[in-house]
Every structure is written in structure tokens, then in C-alpha cells.
């Protein structure tokens, strides 16, 4: 506000109960391997997109699970669907499908459409 020369900062805390996890639930129902990710980062390390942009599939997966969907919505289209992440995942997560389902989910809930 001009009168004060500053405005009240917004919190950056994940408010788990205020967030909605409908995107993560949509993926989890259709691709159960989504649940067994242990956040090792193999997918992001090998990712072509991740090496040139701020795209991190590891991060986006956890953000969806916490209901922090905004950053996912902004970034999920960057994936080129090459499939290398799926190839390297030690837990056998079908990461490529996670990405396609995430895109579907965002389309399905128009408020979040990508």
C-alpha cells in the first residue's frame, strides 16, 4: 500500500488442509505407481527439459501430492515425453504416464486448465 511503502507478505507455508489434492488423486487412481515415488531425483537428473529449464518432475510430483498445484500447472507442459525418466526410475514409477495424466487432470478441472 502506497501509504505505508510496503504490503503484508504472503506466507509461503504449505497449508495442507487448505489445499486441494484432486490432481494427485486423479493420477493416483489411474497410475498407482505414482504413490511409490521416494523422491530420489533420478527422473529430474536425466531429464532433458530439466537440464535447460526449471522443470523438475521430482518436485512437481511432490507439489501435486501436497496440493500446491499452481507451479505444476505452469510447468507440466514443458515435458517432451521422451520417457527417459521412466527408464531410470528405481521404483518403477510410470513417470511418463504421470505427466500425461497430470495434463489430463488439469484439463478436466477447468479452473486449472493448462
Amino acid at each position: 500500500m502506497d501509504r505505508f511503502g510496503f504490503s503484508i507478505s504472503k506466507g509461503r507455508q504449505i497449508d495442507y488442509d487448505a489445499n486441494s489434492r484432486h490432481i494427485a488423486e486423479f493420477i493416483s487412481e489411474r497410475e498407482p505407481s505414482f504413490r511409490v515415488c521416494i523422491e530420489c531425483g533420478c527422473c529430474s537428473a536425466t531429464c532433458t527439459t530439466g537440464n535447460f529449464t526449471s522443470f523438475s518432475l521430482r518436485e512437481l510430483q511432490i507439489l501435486m501430492k501436497r496440493g500446491e498445484n499452481e507451479k505444476v500447472r505452469e510447468n507440466i507442459k514443458k515435458c517432451m515425453l521422451c520417457g527417459k525418466c521412466t527408464l531410470v526410475c528405481p521404483r518403477g514409477v510410470n513417470t511418463r504416464n504421470v505427466v500425461t495424466l497430470a495434463r489430463q487432470a488439469f484439463q478436466k478441472f477447468p479452473a486449472n486448465a493448462v
Binding site: 505505508f4 511503502g5 510496503f6 504490503s7 503484508i8 507478505s9 504472503k10 506466507g11
Partner: peptide
């Protein structure tokens, strides 16, 4: 510092 006051006030607000 005036520019930092947004964070200061946010603490009280919380």
C-alpha cells in the same frame, strides 16, 4: 528497513 516491513507485519498477522 521499510521494504522489509511486509515480512515483519506478516508475522504479527499470523
Amino acid at each position: 528497513i521499510q521494504a522489509n516491513r511486509g515480512f515483519s507485519i506478516a508475522c504479527s498477522k499470523e
